[in-house]
Design a protein around this nucleic acid. Structure first.
Length: 677
DNA sequence: GTAAAAGCCCACCCACACCA
DNA sequence: TGGTGTGGGTGGGCTTTTAC
């Protein structure tokens, strides 16, 4: 194997205590600030492998036990506490399958149980150990489970010890307030004039002398009503933090980032006590103490303790007590001196090794590297006339030479520097300030490197499309308004059966995605079946939602990467509005509406839906999806065929299941149909 | 003018509240 | 109940500001 794609995690190993350090130390360890500590990589899984002949294998569909076996083959030289495969145990109860023996050989450790109860008991005991040792939890994977990128995996389960390791909650006093501009703010539009009505988060402190030592924020655990009551109650005492006197109260703490500066502050004697629970104390330099709470939240129903006054709250000494005596070690960033007082890690800065310059000399170097090795057209043997008489300007980036070379190979010309009107196409993978300037100044479209690659792939000059254009010019933008939704995904067209048949027969374009079975790796490729049933050619639609579930974008070096579905949650917020701006299209993902549908789509299908995003017509998408299935060993069969006795994966696409969606907002108006299994 | 520091935004994870 | 949006934490990269 020459190359592989691993799933794993970087952890910090402390050779002194022979333990894995708690969450949050990787930065300091990486900086070499902790003696006898090193980072190490624990491998969980193997997703891709390239054999010596350069052939790439995608292993997502391979059962876990096979992937595990391959992992052992791929990582021949493990090094303890440097690079190691995660320890795992095969748990089995008696079942008669042909595979049992084969599966057992893939795991270093096997435990057999007489029945399921025994297995469950064992897991319970293991979980207790995990809790004692303060590890994160136990992953349970079915031996037959597949690997799903960016998705909750079927057949994988995480058993976690209960969070809330702090034995007791803390009573903290509200020291400051932060405004929100999200949902909580919008809910109170009537009160818009008073900024204090938009408070959503509290800065909290423990007692020290007559002031606070602030050490955490908290913005969850209470209801909107409780929040409203408490802000109304405290409004008269809120003050601007810019007042010099307040520095005294804050023990001269000043936040390192302006975002941490509270919008309002309050004197302890006027404030209210909050009861806070947290997972643990973690080292942090954000607040006035050298640690903060991980996962802070107000205790449900007891968030605001009006029955307690400032004198009764937790103290700095209490916090130290927790650090010294409770469930976990002192965070390495915190050193206790003889008297037990903590010493700020900030104060230790002078002892630190000077940090290596973090800022790359970046752009200049990149441009220099580019200009030093300009491709000489004379040395290129032209392969086609595809781009003849066309001139391209390619904005330099790490791999831009590849694109330039491809242009020359196909008969195109290069414009070495951008000049108004001198080039037919401007190629850039990302909207840098400079490219944006060209775009605005000359009203030109900026094309993605994908445009060049796709034109070559299909040996034809493709039409501009949201998938291959970074930013359209005004004319194109106007044209697209009627063609695509704001992120270029959907375009509906009527379809008839002939057309569908034609499309389905054209899987040839995608054959190249097929990988042969490699006997060496024993890749397992199950055959599956799709049933197409009851098409109404006039009402073909497909799940727009699923196409937008996740998605793809170009990263900094022009690679096509998966966008996590978290982006969906931006719908309706300010971020989302921004993603409707063409100028931001290259690096913000799509808005998204209620997504329950996508979760119901079979995972095999969802995978392809994600893969083939930004299709210009809905039947094109469908064709690609089906073609992909065909390529992966699926086959089509007729509706009449009896599939009850086969292990078919059946996807029914029936007019009844395709209905007019509940469409909200103008941006959604183009989405006509939704698919519900 | 250049390098370092700071600011800002985005990515990840997890917990909880709210809502359909 | 699942999806969404809020909050907390972290690190990392790009851009802007500051210091020399």
């Amino acid at each position: 194997i020459s190359e592989c794609l691993l799933d794993g995690e970087i952890l910090c190993w402390d050779a002194n205590s022979e333990t894995v350090l708690p969450f949050g130390h990787s930065r300091t360890v990486a900086d070499g600030e902790l003696a006898d500590c090193n980072l190490f990589y624990v491998v969980f899984d193997l997703m891709e492998a390239v054999n010596k002949a350069g052939k790439r294998f995608y292993l997502e569909q391979v059962p876990y036990f096979k992937r595990r076996e391959m992992l052992q083959k791929v990582l021949l030289r493990q090094r303890v506490h440097e690079l190691e495969i995660i320890q795992s145990t095969l748990l089995c109860i008696p079942v008669d399958t042909d595979e049992s023996e084969e599966v057992e050989t893939c795991f270093p450790c096997v435990r057999k149980f007489e029945n399921l109860e025994g297995l469950v008991r064992y897991l319970g005991e293991e979980l207790e150990k995990v809790q004692e040792e303060r590890r994160e939890g136990i992953m349970i994977k079915q031996v037959s489970s597949r690997y799903f990128f960016n998705a909750r995996s079927k057949g994988w389960f995480k058993l976690k010890p209960r969070f809330g390791w702090l034995k007791d909650s803390l009573d903290l006093v509200i020291a400051g307030f932060y405004l929100s501009d999200g949902q909580r703010r919008r809910r109170r539009e009537a009160d818009f004039l008073d900024r204090r009505d938009h408070i959503s988060t509290f800065l909290l402190g423990v007692k020290e002398d007559e002031g606070y030592r602030v050490f955490t924020k908290c913005g969850t655990g209470y209801t909107i009503e409780e929040l409203r009551d408490v802000t109304d109650e405290l409004k008269p005492y809120m003050r601007s933090p810019d007042d010099a006197d307040w520095n005294q109260i804050f023990n001269f703490w000043s936040p390192s980032a302006t975002s941490e500066k509270p919008d309002y502050v309050i004197l302890p004697q006027h404030s209210i006590v909050m009861e806070i629970m947290g997972a643990e104390l973690v080292p942090s330099e954000v607040f006035d103490l050298p640690y903060t709470l991980r996962f802070p939240r107000a205790v449900k129903g007891k968030a605001f303790r009006r029955d307690k006054n400032y004198d009764e709250i937790s103290t700095v000494a209490d916090i130290k007590d927790i650090l010294q005596n409770k469930h976990f070690d002192n965070p390495p960033g915190t050193k206790l001196n003889d008297s037990g007082d903590e010493v700020h890690t900030k104060d230790n800065n002078r002892n630190k090794k000077p940090k290596a310059a973090t800022r790359a000399t970046g752009k200049r170097d990149r441009v220099d590297a580019y200009t030093e090795s300009l491709i000489n057209k004379k040395t290129i043997t032209q392969e086609s006339n595809l781009f003849s008489k066309l001139t391209f300007y390619v904005e330099p980036y790490k791999d831009s030479m590849e694109v330039e070379k491809a242009i020359l190979l196909n008969g195109g010309d290069l414009q070495r520097t951008y000049q108004t009107g001198k080039q037919d196409f401007v190629i850039s993978h990302v909207l840098t300030a400079r490219v944006k300037l060209y775009h605005c100044k000359d009203d030109i479209s900026i094309y993605l490197p994908k445009f060049v690659n796709d034109c070559i792939r299909y040996q034809t000059m493709l039409q501009p499309h949201p998938a291959n254009v970074l930013v359209p010019n005004l004319e194109l933008k106007a044209e697209w308004e009627h063609k695509f939704d704001p992120i270029g995904d959907n375009y509906l067209e009527p379809i008839n059966l002939d057309m569908l048949e034609l499309l389905l027969s054209r899987d040839d374009l995608y054959k190249q995605d097929i990988e042969d079975i490699d006997p060496e790796l024993s890749i397992y490729c199950p055959s599956k079946i799709i049933v197409l049933k009851g098409w109404d050619p006039q009402r073909v639609g497909f799940s727009s939602l699923a196409f937008n579930h996740g998605g793809r974008k170009s990263d900094d070096v022009g690679n096509d990467v998966e966008v996590k579905k978290e982006y969906r949650s931006n719908y309706g917020s300010e971020k989302c509005e921004r993603s409707f701006d063409w100028n931001y299209m290259s690096y913000t993902a799509m808005p998204y509406t209620s997504g329950s549908i996508s979760e119901q789509i079979p995972p095999q299908l969802a995978k392809y839906l994600n893969r083939y995003r930004r299709m210009n017509v809905i039947y094109e998408s469908l064709r690609l999806v089906l073609a992909s299935f065909l390529c992966d060993g699926f086959r089509l069969r007729s509706e009449e065929e009896d599939i009850s006795r086969t292990k078919a994966t059946t996807i029914y696409l029936h007019p009844e299941h395709i209905h007019l969606g509940e469409v909200q907002g103008e941006s959604r108006s183009i989405w006509s149909f939704m698919y519900q299994p």
